[in-house]
């Protein structure tokens, strides 16, 4: 909507011409300037500028929905109102039905806790036919650390849902729906993301997994708090993918120990701690004074005795 053309918004002709003559073509160009700047630049009066800005804003403004209509649409159009069940009762209840569509879900935990196993299971569940409670769709699995194991996934399937996997050919069909990508570097990942965007739209892909996000960024951190996250662009791109294709996206992340210092506090918290410390000092000071007195007294006593 930001790139909507001003000339197509039905402004009064004279006003539209003035905008075009000053090379203000899109809504973005116009709205990036204040009303006074526009007055100067376009050489028209305040009233006309405010009227034009209001008009452009109305056109560039995204449409609204009530929260109720959003909810009803999801219930109508999507599996479980937009959720992929994990089949873990407690987790599904907490997540209102499962991994939500349209947003990014991050799995975090220490090494060996089972993040990859969790992802494998999710890929399997999404690839199940809809008659068995799956999404019956393709899955894109970005495997950064080469941890994906088809054997393990089939094993999981046979053990957890034997009635399906013992059927001839179904295991093959489902495993065939899972596309594994193995980018070797961040730049390769960037490239494949662009491809994923295209294939998400063209093919019936209903789940995207990135295992793991942290491995992509490792080694690219400098000391001190980073100014801009190396994966900032990727994360927002993935987020927009999830939202506009209305699919669940699952990414995994590693854990790091964090130093608890002032960098995780606000100024008012630091000040309060400093005040507390100040209050403690007099007590210590008295104690030291007392010790000193005692010490000198002892010395004097010794001196007298000698």
């Amino acid at each position: 909507m930001a790139n909507k053309l001003i000339s197509e918004m039905g402004l009064p002709k004279s006003t539209a011409h003035v905008f075009a003559a000053r090379n203000i073509i899109t809504a973005k160009d116009a709205l990036s300037l204040s009303e006074f700047e526009l007055m100067e630049l376009l050489d028209v009066g305040l009233e006309e500028v405010t009227r034009a800005v209001a008009h452009i804003s109305e056109f560039a403004c995204p449409p609204y929905q009530t929260a109720l209509s959003v909810l009803e649409q999801r219930i109508q159009n999507e599996n479980m109102a937009g959720h992929l069940p994990t089949r873990l009762k407690g987790l599904d209840a907490a997540l209102c039905g499962g991994i939500p569509f349209g947003v990014v879900t991050e799995l975090v935990g220490p090494a060996g806790i089972g993040k990859t196993q969790f992802c494998l299971k999710l890929a399997l569940l999404a690839s199940l036919p809809t008659s068995y409670g799956g999404l019956g769709a393709h899955v894109i699995y970005v495997d950064v650390e080469s941890k994906f194991s088809s054997r393990r996934m089939i094993e999981m399937g046979i053990n957890s849902i034997p009635e399906i996997f013992q059927k001839e050919g179904l295991a093959q069909e489902m495993a065939g729906r899972i596309l594994v990508l193995r980018p070797a570097s961040l730049s390769e990942f960037t490239e494949s993301l662009q491809q994923i965007k295209v294939s998400l739209l063209q093919h019936h892909v209903k789940l995207l997994i990135v295992d793991s996000m942290a491995a992509l960024a490792s080694g690219e951190y400098g000391p001190g708090p980073p100014r801009q996250h190396p994966l900032g662009w990727h994360i927002s791109f993935i987020k927009s993918l999830a939202e506009f294709c209305r699919i669940p996206v699952v990414v995994t992340n590693q854990v790091r120990s964090q130093v608890h210092d002032d960098a995780s506090r606000y100024l008012f918290q630091v000040q309060r701690i400093a005040e507390l410390r100040l209050k403690k000092i007099p007590q210590n000071f008295l104690l030291i004074l007392l010790l000193l007195l005692e010490f000198t007294g002892l010395m004097l006593l010794l001196f007298v005795l000698c």
């Binding site: 209001a54 560039a60 403004c61 995204p62 929260a67 109720l68």
Partner: peptide, 23 residues
């Protein structure tokens, strides 16, 4: 839920546009 008007804004231009349009 019916009384919550939800605008999803995807760029800063849209954000400015919504705020202008709110009046």
């Amino acid at each position: 839920l019916d009384n919550i008007f939800y605008f999803r804004v995807c760029t800063y231009t849209e954000q400015i546009a919504v705020i202008n349009y709110l009046e």
